[in-house]
Design a protein around this nucleic acid. Structure first.
Lengths: 215, 215
DNA sequence: TATCCGCCGTACCGTACGTTACGGTTCAGC
DNA sequence: GCTGAACCGTAACGTACGGTACGGCGGATA
């Protein structure tokens, strides 16, 4: 820690340190739970004073909001590369989206952050939704639209198609995690689930090939 | 309120009054949110003393647990009637399950209770899961197994089939509600969603009839 | 009518947290 | 070396909540 400050600008130097504080919030949240996330605990964990916390983030809600944004900026993955979309590339892209999404929602950080957002004021909930559910929706829709333009799938409403995909991928995973259950979700399970979800989605929306065997 | 006490037994009379207290908890939770659910507020709302609350429910967690159980006992719906299961009856039963489930998870009471269970200790989360997600799973599986025995659908694992159905029904509804979003879910929307989910499920798992048009 | 018991209303206690204030320390710039 | 700003560590304040104690009331029983 306390590396030599990036000398780009005064603001960047602050941001550097702020990131460490926000990482401390995330670590505390994952390790001790939302109940233990007091300003004192954050200050101790981040090796800074409470005065600094309040100067930088205003109040507790500001700190939490900034933490949500920080986590979102770390999770953001790239969109798909839209060159020559055939059936195989579509399936691969769908699987990649599904696997990435499952990895995100099953991460301890995501679960902890969603917990506080749900329990906390509505402001945080909107922020988490915008950076989670809706962000991935906007990133997936171009793929769906291109696939439809290529005649690979058929649907009327991209939003509705995405919601079905969302349901096929997540199923009961997120609510179970949020409620403290631990559905098995190691790497191979995620890969299998992603493949299954992609298959089922193509079985429902595929325009040409006959529906694949589900399940 | 304060009706003449049921004269069956001393215990029943207490339960009668307890129900009123638990309804007060639910009302408070829905109207003011989890943050306002203090023991003082409950006592005022229920027109009883805090001393009584602690005598009856032990502590705050006991009151919350009892409230979850109370709500679960009110929501429990009957299983399907398993007489002569043909394709039409199967679709109807699936739609009924889907519609009922959507009604439950979109109710203000369910949302509020899930919020506290997620934010609260893990004990409540397990209770909510047992009375929600897993309870409906156990109620749907007999239908799925009978339908498979009748040759109407095909699957290897009833649990996996149910999870897919769960995802097709709920999609992003529950997480959006928990995070404070208000996806439109009036009566006709629920009916449409239930029909769509049943169609999609039959398209994926139907053994005989060709897959219906999805979406 | 006398007694008892359960409950209400309220005051109270201990604690924990968010927020503020302050003295001491480090460090950049002159 | 001096100054000032930023920050650390900690103490302090106000508040709110979970939990407990107590006086009083009404209703049941004899």
């Amino acid at each position: 820690m306390q590396v030599e400050a990036i000398t780009i600008a005064g603001e960047e130097e602050i941001t550097e340190r702020r990131a460490a504080v926000l990482d401390a919030v995330l670590a505390l949240l994952v390790e001790k739970g939302a109940a233990a996330l007091t300003m004192t605990a954050v200050a101790q964990r981040a090796r800074c004073s409470k005065e600094t916390l309040y100067k930088w983030f205003g109040d507790r809600d500001g700190l939490l909001s900034e933490t949500v944004r920080w986590q979102a900026s770390k999770v953001r993955a790239g969109a798909y590369d839209r060159q020559h979309l055939d059936a195989g590339a579509l399936r691969e892209s769908l699987e990649a989206f599904a696997a990435n999404w499952l990895s995100v929602i099953s991460s301890q950080t995501s679960v902890a952050l969603n917990r506080v957002a749900i329990g906390q004021a509505e402001a945080l909930g909107g922020l988490v939704l915008a950076n989670g559910r809706f962000a991935i929706g906007e990133r997936l829709k171009p793929l769906l639209l291109d696939a439809r333009a290529a005649g690979l799938i058929a649907f009327d409403d991209a939003e509705e198609a995405f919601r079905t995909f969302f349901g096929l991928v997540g199923r009961d995973v997120q609510i179970r995690l949020l409620l403290g259950d631990r559905p098995p979700l190691d790497g191979s399970t995620i890969a299998d689930d992603a493949a299954r979800a992609a298959n089922q989605f193509l079985a429902l929306y595929g325009a040409k090939q006959q529906p694949a065997k589900a399940g």
